[in-house]
Every structure is written in structure tokens, then in C-alpha cells.
Write a protein that binds this DNA or RNA. Structure first.
Lengths: 191, 191
DNA sequence: CAATTTGTACAGTTTTTTCTGTACATACGG
DNA sequence: CCGTATGTACAGAAAAAACTGTACAAATTG
């Protein structure tokens, strides 16, 4: 936790407690997104840091090994949730959170979804081709057709879904999503 | 895997292979969504089943214990990816996949996101109140203000993001999302 | 209502993942 | 160009999660 200068102990306690609540909440819930609780906790720590942080400081604050900080922060950088920062005159690597959560959100799910999409779509298409070939080979084999048709229908519907997901991801990446769901709405429309 | 009647061995091999490819791809990639590979595999198995399936059949097909099937299928039902089905004259529970992947997608992320949203928003708001109170208590304490302001700004921005996410989830649940990103697009616009 | 079948709770085992400490390659400052 | 500081690969230890078998409670059928 960042050291705080020139405050009374009471003030500091309040601030640390307020920060801690948010950090732990974030840390716990990032776990729903497939991020370890410790890494989520690290993310929360960096969130309240007002200056880029070194691996050593992180290890100190988290009471964990520098190795863990290294791997943890690398995960966060890969997910574009944290950025590496250079500072002249220091040979240490520095890191800070990406504060634009809209961007973080878009990057995170674009990355994950696109990855799954590509692999699954490719498997679906390959299998579809094979089944269609088999289908065309024996167009009069009723038993075969009866088995193939449901499979082909399911595969087609799955492909349809992935084509849609692909366009949804596009809208995340382009920012078009914010025209349907604006970042802000006028106060009068708020619930 | 579902038994197939009245087909030549060659035909059966092709079909099983095509199915297996898709099942394994789905199983592996659901793991990106925080679902165990075995449970993902179970989901894939159910996907190609043309009739609801019992726990015993699943265990047999997956070569796993019935206990695992029970917990696995419960996870999938909780996520609304699989539905429980009743059939007269059988005392076994039967399960089948939700074939509407658009619905599955919407349910899955609505559930997860809403859960994290509620907890985090509540923590953010509680901490915001505490910090604002502290802020108002000593409006002339420059050192204090300097520390509080960045924290409050970050919290406000995070709240803004969650308010947006809340509306995004609403659009998933209401189906409004499909007006920005239609399920289908005309062939002429396809890439 | 009894007999039997079915699903799951639970404890223990196995497998997987996370975390640490050391050792080392790299890079920067002097 | 040397010396030191820094990040990470790797192997092993610790922790967590997945899986199984048994035992039992709930439910359905005759």
C-alpha cells in the first residue's frame, strides 16, 4: 500500500480501510473472470497506486515473492489490464493499471472470446464439411440422413452464433457498442 | 456417445470423428470461460445427444463416476447451459443442452457480470461515502485533499463503468443487443 | 407402505495449480 | 568494459481443485 505523507493516523486508517475494501472486492471478483485471487489482489493494489510501481514494492506490499509478482504482473500486462512504463534513470521495470475500465473490459473479452471463437469455428467448419460430404455420398440412405440432419442443424446454428459473436466483438473493438449502450445517460433517465 | 443404428461402420467412424472434434474443441475452450475441461467435455457430449440423457449414461460415455456427473451437470444447470427434463415413467433425472446459444451466452454473462457488479459497486459506494465524509470533515487540509482526490476520481470512474455494464447486461437480457448487432446479416454484407 | 432405485454429501485420494527460492542471463550505470 | 542490479526460468514445496467410492436420504413404483 502506498505510503501516505502528512496525514494524521486517524485519517490514514480511514483511507486504508476504504481502499482495502475496494481492493479485496475487486480481487475476489476478478476470480469470476478466470483471474487468480492473488493476481486480482495485485491489480487492486496497483489501482490505488498514484505512481507506477516496481516489482519489489509489489512484493513488499503483497507480502509475496518477487517471482510471483513477475508472473502475476505479466498476466495482467498480457490482458492489457496493466501497462509497463519506463522511467529514465531507473533500471527497474515500472507498472501501472490501465485506468480506462471500458477499454480494459473491451480488450479482455475481445481477447478471450476471439480466441475461443477461432478455434471452435474452425472445428465446426471442418466437421461440417466432413458430414456434408458423407451426406452427399449416400443421398438415399434414409437412416444416415436421419442421423446427419440433426448434427448438421446444430452445427449450423452454432456457426450462426459465432458469426454473431464475431460482430459483437467488432463492436467492442470499434466502440460502436457505445452507441447502443452509451457510456453515460442523462440524469433524467437514470433509474 | 450416442449409439447409432443402421449405419455402416465406415459411416459411423466419420460421424463420431466429426462429433469428437467439435466436442473437444468446445470442452477445451469453455475452460476460457472458467469451466473445467471435463465439464466442458460433458457439455459437448450432451450437445450432440438427440435425446435427454441420464447421469448413468453420461458417466458411461465420459468414463467417469456418477458423482462427477452429478456435480458437473449441476454446474451446467446453474449456468443455464443445460436443462433438466422430466419424462413420465422414469424416475431418473434427464438433462439436455439449451440449444439456443444466443440465450446461453446472454444468461452466462448476465449471471457472472451481475454478480461481480453488485458486490464491487457496493464496495465502491461504501468506500466513496467514507472518503467523502473524511474529505468534508477537513476541507482545508491540503495534504489530505491531495491524497483523497485521486482516490475519489478513480472510484467515480469505476462506478461510471459499472453503471454502463449494468445497462449492457440489460440489453443482453432484453434482447436489445440484437438491434445493434443483429443475429443475422444480409448475404451482401457478409465479409 | 415397503422395496428399490436414484441423486448427492462427504471424506479421502489424486491431479493440477500456485507459490517460493535459487540460479542465471541480461542490461544498465559507472 | 566491468560490476552490480534486475527480471525470469526452473525445480521443488505448498495449496487448491477435481475426482472417486461409500453411505445415506429422498423419491417413485408396485
Amino acid at each position: 500500500m502506498e505510503t501516505i505523507q502528512g496525514l494524521s493516523p486517524e485519517q490514514e486508517v480511514v483511507i486504508q480501510k476504504a481502499r482495502k475494501r475496494v481492493i479485496e472486492s475487486i480481487g475476489k471478483n476478478l476470480d469470476l473472470y478466470g483471474i487468480t485471487q492473488s493476481i486480482g489482489h495485485l491489480y487492486g493494489l496497483l489501482f490505488f497506486q498514484n505512481h507506477p510501481m516496481t516489482l519489489d514494492k509489489m512484493g513488499e506490499a503483497m507480502e509475496m515473492s518477487k517471482t510471483s509478482m513477475s508472473t502475476g504482473v505479466r498476466t495482467l500486462v498480457d490482458l492489457k489490464m496493466v501497462n509497463k512504463v519506463w522511467e529514465k534513470g531507473s533500471r527497474k521495470d515500472l507498472y501501472e493499471v490501465e485506468l480506462d475500465w471500458f477499454q480494459t473490459f473491451a480488450d479482455f473479452f475481445s481477447l478471450k472470446w476471439r480466441k475461443a471463437l477461432e478455434i471452435n469455428l474452425s472445428a465446426l467448419r471442418k466437421s461440417k464439411t466432413e458430414l456434408r460430404n458423407l451426406c452427399e455420398q449416400s443421398p438415399d440412405d434414409a437412416a444416415l440422413q436421419a442421423v446427419l440432419q440433426p448434427d448438421l442443424d446444430k452445427i449450423d446454428e452454432a456457426i450462426r452464433y459465432y458469426m454473431w459473436l464475431d460482430r459483437l466483438i467488432d463492436s467492442f473493438e470499434s466502440g460502436d457498442i457505445y452507441s447502443l449502450v452509451p457510456k453515460d445517460i442523462p440524469p433524467s433517465e437514470r433509474p
